[in-house]
């Protein structure tokens, strides 16, 4: 059902924002550009540093679920 018809004859001003176009995302799409490119390695490291240092988390949650208090 046709409710309303609007004919727009004028061109509306265009947004001038500069964004990375999709075809320019070729580099960002590479696996080595992933923020966490090797999650298992990250998990290992988080566990090692959690058990040896007073800091944890940052990238993700710092819980640890480890009894190595």
């Amino acid at each position: 059902m046709l409710k309303t018809t609007l004919v727009v004859l004028a061109v509306v001003g265009l947004c001038g924002c500069s964004t990375v176009k999709p075809w320019e995302r070729d580099l960002l799409a590479k696996p080595q550009m992933a923020l966490d490119s090797d999650p298992l390695q990250t998990a290992f490291e988080d566990h090692i540093y959690f058990s040896k240092e007073a800091s944890s988390g940052g990238r993700g949650f710092g819980g640890g679920g480890c009894g190595c208090n």
Partner: peptide, 11 residues
């Protein structure tokens, strides 16, 4: 605890 994390990936 409070943490601030900043990561950059540059191709």
């Amino acid at each position: 605890k409070m943490s601030f994390f900043w990561q950059n990936k540059v191709a």
